[in-house]
């Protein structure tokens, strides 16, 4: 079995594909987090705006993955461009919504106490809301990680490279060994990332002593 793995790894150059894969994953996740959290912070005070923003983002979630990738082709061509863009679009909702929920659902007694002892709005945001929201945000990022891994893998069919491409090769040439090795390898990576995100999420929740 290990021999098969090594053989496929070398013949399909999985090392390079993995790096391609992770590169796309990294950039997509980075921008998703930046934009997602930013959106969450911008709208947490205005419920009506938040409702509209989430409606729009919800609609994006409805679009099937492949369909979204294809919609982006006229704009961004083939390859990693539309793949990364699609990842970001899908990841905005979980991150923004979790950021929003985290910022907004701070227990009112803490907010009242904070206001009463003399913290300004900005100080409350920095010292109370954001620390409270952190585990929620990480929860959203965790979801985004799973989405992003999925979309990057799919990007293989629109010539984005990465491990999805070797899976496609395996399917096209009816090579079960390539299919199995590539799929399981990407599966392991995905599970590992999700697991670590989960650990961070749990640690932050405990550190906030919120049970």
């Amino acid at each position: 079995m290990i021999e098969t793995f090594q053989m496929v790894w070398n013949s399909q150059d999985l090392g390079t594909k993995t790096i391609e894969h992770l590169e796309m994953f990294f950039w997509a996740l980075l921008f998703s987090i930046l934009f997602g959290i930013l959106i969450g912070i911008l709208i947490y005070k205005k419920k009506q705006l938040a409702d509209i923003v989430f409606q729009v983002l919800n609609i994006i979630e409805l679009i099937p993955t492949l369909a979204l990738l294809i919609l982006l082709l006229p704009l961004l061509g083939l390859g990693s461009g539309p793949t990364i863009a699609a990842c970001i679009l899908y990841s905005l909702l979980p991150i923004a919504r979790n950021t929003y929920t985290g910022l907004v659902t701070v227990n009112t007694q803490y907010l009242q106490a904070a206001q009463g002892i003399g913290l300004s709005s900005k100080e409350i945001l920095l010292n109370i809301r954001i620390p409270y929201a952190l585990p929620h945000i990480i929860g959203g990022i965790r979801i985004a990680i799973v989405f992003t891994m999925g979309v990057v893998t799919l990007g293989g069919v629109i010539a984005a490279g990465g491990l999805g491409q070797s899976i496609q090769t395996g399917l096209q040439f009816n090579r079960p060994d390539i299919i199995i090795v590539s799929s399981i390898w990407v599966g392991i990576l995905a599970v590992l990332f999700d697991f670590f995100a989960g650990v961070v999420e749990r640690t932050l929740t405990r550190r906030n002593h919120l049970g």
Binding site: Q109, A113, G116, G118, L119, H209
Partner: peptide, 19 residues
């Protein structure tokens, strides 16, 4: 905010920040 910094405030629910 300045006013509140000059006044001590204690509430029923205590409101200590858990984190």
């Amino acid at each position: 905010v300045t006013l509140r910094r000059n006044i001590g405030y204690v509430i029923q629910q205590i409101g200590l920040f858990p984190h």
